[in-house]
Design a binder for these strands. Structure first.
Lengths: 342, 342
DNA sequence: AAATTATTTGCAATCGTTTTCATTATTTTT
DNA sequence: AAAAATAATGAAAACGATTGCAAATAATTT
């Protein structure tokens, strides 16, 4: 039994397809009687509109695209559990508004894969973790459709963005370390090309300066944002003299650092204190449980979708830049230094 | 500048739209000269077909749905990094075949959310981790469209499935423990409702029996598949007498078990050996690195998409049941017991 | 009751493709 | 060189909705 079309419904109800369409979309003027009659036939036949046809006519799809970085390493995808929650949040937000989500992994090289956005008439895009002038950003600008960027720190004041309060997070994290007597802090960050790292570094330096201290590049290690990345810094960290604490700008890196240090016989937090950033699922189960800056990833995703759908529906007064608050998750990877207690 | 339609291309090339269509789809008979001419105008104008229009005509959407379990706990989504890779694999497989993926989280209670499958005329569905007679399965059966189930172990011999070789994995894992002298093994598994757990248990028991040993329910602990789930079994494990090894049917649980045991002062693998299952991203970075049964999650996702698209395209001779091979990742969480070496 | 107005309903064009089949152009055969 | 066979192209009809506007019907006013 084929799925009935609007024509089938119209015939059975003895009315025109225009009327059925009006009933379905609650548009135009249709009498109560007619609405009831058509409505009951619709549910009897199990009719629902063909979205391809509607999309063709209306040039809209009620579909939003989610573009996530999609890095391949030796033929395998890079595993970043962070994104799963984000996408879940986006999906949740979309579903509440009768939109659906098309997922598209993409990388810097094949920005052409974005052509599907036009072909499918996507209504909007959520883009995760790109940066100013990246090939992806450029391609997306040409598309000229509603967009919301997550964690991208673009300079364009008009584009919609949602990001964590990275600067404040790093500021508070650093302050927390300072309050626990740590004056000499190593920083492990990702590459500076992304705005996220820059913002976190700014917050860190600011906190240092406000407390009469100077940031020293010598204590700054740049490493890939991954467990391996952290792991490989262990020796460099030990070579740093006088540091009493490490501020890892991501939990995934902190995981690696802790593992590397542990294998070298360093005790945490007795020998060295560690602060993380992100509060991933496993962070509270590390040994010791990692003190870190937490963010509500689901909220981040949901907020992005709301902003996007707001744009699509031409709502006014939507904030262009949205910040998700941070919170320090105090656990056991930091111990007071030099008897200088809180 | 609007996106050009096939008509625009046809006009500029001075040919009919039928010809352009034939060129685009490599159908019908078109002369070489014509192909070149049209092709170059297509790329000059940046034409690509409108998928809604094509879908309307062909009664296809070139869209596949991915249904993943979506469990909320205290208002938050359950975090299972496992799915991210799976979805990535599915997306990758789909993209290679000009399909796109619509993501839909769903839980047992709101199976009605599946109505979008009809409305969007999805061409097929990949369903992850459901089970026989679940509300989701029932709803999906009514939909009557091509489906592929992942990790679901349905009884229906006609439905398409892809799963890990769970039974063999558990068999080999157990044999490995046995070969290392462990005769008394505790098992931590998830609930038995899902076929995955049952299959793994079967493999385990089989290996035991083949070696003249009996499975004892006393050594079997059922716990939620999560870090917490594993963590909370630590005390129960210590209460078990005479065991020398633990076989965790998932790495995420093993993570929790290791953490719980570590906090109780148990040394791994000196006091107790541990075998995991899944080989998650972090498993090789645990302390000690976890010996576990690995699966190629991306391959699993890709295979599912291939099966699905095969069905959609009415290919024949597609295997109904597909098994992804396992491999033991030998690391350092298991040590020989009783001097009975390999 | 006729004229006016308000309310319902339906006609038909349109969106951008694919696809069948007729037509025209080209080549081959006689 | 005409006839037959083959190859290349195009005209037009779908596919299933939405929508502006005309037509029909009902309600109101004169």
């Amino acid at each position: 039994m084929e799925k009935p079309s609007i024509k089938d419904v119209a015939e059975k109800a003895g009315v025109s397809i225009a009327t059925v369409s009006n009933v379905v979309n609650k548009k135009g003027r249709v009498s109560e009687k007619m609405i009831d009659r058509v409505q009951s036939i619709i549910s009897e036949m199990g009719y629902s509109p063909n979205i391809s046809a509607r999309g063709l006519k209306q040039q809209q799809s009620y579909l939003i695209g989610v573009i996530v970085p999609f890095q391949q390493q030796d033929g395998n995808l890079q595993d970043n559990p962070f994104y799963w929650n984000l996408v879940s949040g986006i999906e949740l937000g979309a579903r509440n508004e009768k939109f659906h989500v098309i997922l598209s992994g993409i990388n810097e090289e094949n920005a052409d894969a974005l052509d599907f956005v036009k072909d499918r008439h996507l209504d909007g895009l959520v883009i995760v973790g790109t940066y100013e002038d990246s090939p992806i950003t450029q391609k997306i600008n040409q598309l000229n459709i509603p967009c919301v960027y997550i964690d991208s720190y673009l300079k364009d004041k008009n584009c919609y963005e949602v990001y964590l309060d990275d600067e404040k997070g790093a500021y508070e994290g650093t302050k927390y370390l300072l309050n626990h007597g740590h004056q000499n802090i190593a920083v492990i960050s990702g590459e500076l090309e992304g705005g996220v790292t820059t913002a976190r570094l700014r917050g860190h330096i600011d906190a240092l300066n406000k407390n009469g201290l100077l940031f020293s590049e010598e204590n700054h290690i740049v490493a890939p944002v991954s467990i391996e990345g952290g792991l490989h810094t262990a020796n460099q960290i030990l070579a740093l003299k006088d540091i009493s604490a490490i501020f890892c700008f991501s939990d995934v890196t902190a995981f690696g650092v802790m593992k590397g240090l542990h294998d070298l016989g360093v005790n945490i937090p007795e020998d060295l204190s560690i602060m993380g950033f992100d509060d991933l699922y496993f962070s509270k189960y590390l040994s010791p449980p990692l003190t870190t800056i937490s963010q509500d990833i689901i909220l981040k995703g949901k907020t992005a979708t709301e902003l996007l759908i707001g744009q699509i529906d031409h709502k006014v007064n939507i904030e262009r830049k949205n910040t998700i608050p941070i919170k320090i998750m105090e656990r056991n990877s930091i111990k007071p230094f030099n008897d200088k207690l809180i």
